[in-house]
Simulated scan of single mutants.
Amino acid sequence: MFHIFLHFIVPGVVAGLFFRKRFWFAYLIMIVTMVVDMDHLLANPIYDPNRCSIGFHPLHTIIPIVFYFVACFIPKTRLIGLGLIIHMALDSIDCQVTNGVWYHITIPSAISLEKSISLSRYYHTNLTYEVSLS
């Protein structure tokens, strides 16, 4: 619940510090960017308190986040970009607090990788390293 509270407080602090003359406009634009959480509707279950949003939901992955970051530097999209970056930062912090990671890495269950990598050419021994993901 504290995490959701921060989604309303942090944009207010940013708007108050950097957009004082247009506080309400800046604050409301940054709050509206919470619609990015609509991608949670694609997940099953829709809400999982132990799931890390960053890297799991489509609009919370690295490619969209890069676009959000770039939007921060374009005057007409700056407030939208800031709202989205604040949102992603708060979600990433929540991942760290709840799961001990900054982002979710998806490894499809269909992948079954079994390779033996000979380390002998690197260490002049007959050691082998086996990687198995299932």
Rank of each mutant, 00 (worst) to 15 (best):
H104F: 13
H40Y: 07
Y123A: 11
Y68T: 01
W102K: 05
F67H: 00
P49E: 00
V36C: 02
H104P: 00
C95R: 00
D48E: 13
I117H: 05
S53P: 15
K76Y: 06
P45Y: 02
G100N: 04
V70I: 13
I80M: 02
E114P: 10
L42A: 12
I63E: 15
L84P: 04
P64T: 02
L82W: 08
N99G: 02
I105T: 14
I111T: 06
S92H: 09
I93Q: 03
Y68I: 00
T98K: 14
P108R: 00
I46G: 01
D91C: 10
F56Q: 12
T106C: 12
K115D: 03
Y68Q: 01
Q96T: 10
H104Y: 11
T61D: 08
S53H: 13
P108C: 07
L79V: 01
L82D: 03
I93K: 01
I86L: 07
N44S: 04
A71F: 00
P45A: 01
I63G: 12
I86H: 03
L84F: 08
H60W: 05
I80H: 00
Y122K: 10
E114N: 09
I85A: 08
T106H: 04
I74D: 01
A71V: 01
K76A: 06
S109T: 13
P58L: 13
Y68L: 03
L127F: 14
I65R: 08
T128K: 10
M88N: 09
V97W: 06
V35M: 01
L42C: 05
S120A: 15
G55F: 12
I63D: 11
D37W: 05
M34K: 12
I93R: 05
Y103W: 11
T33P: 07
I46L: 11
T106A: 13
Y122R: 13
S92R: 10
P64E: 00
L127Y: 04
L127K: 04
I80N: 02
I62Q: 04
V131W: 10
G55Y: 08
P75V: 06
K76D: 01
Q96P: 10
L42Q: 15
A89Q: 03
V97P: 07
V131D: 07
P58D: 14
F69T: 15
M88P: 12
V66S: 10
S53W: 09
I46E: 11
F56T: 15
F69E: 15
D48C: 07
I65N: 10
V131H: 09
T61V: 15
R121S: 07
I46T: 06
E130F: 10
L42I: 14
I80G: 00
S116Y: 04
I111G: 03
T61H: 13
T125M: 01
F56I: 14
G55P: 00
R121V: 14
M88G: 13
S112G: 01
M88L: 09
L113G: 11
C95S: 00
H124E: 08
R121Y: 10
K115E: 09
Y129G: 05
I105C: 07
S120L: 13
G100C: 02
K115T: 05
D39V: 06
C95Y: 03
D94I: 11
I107T: 11
N44I: 11
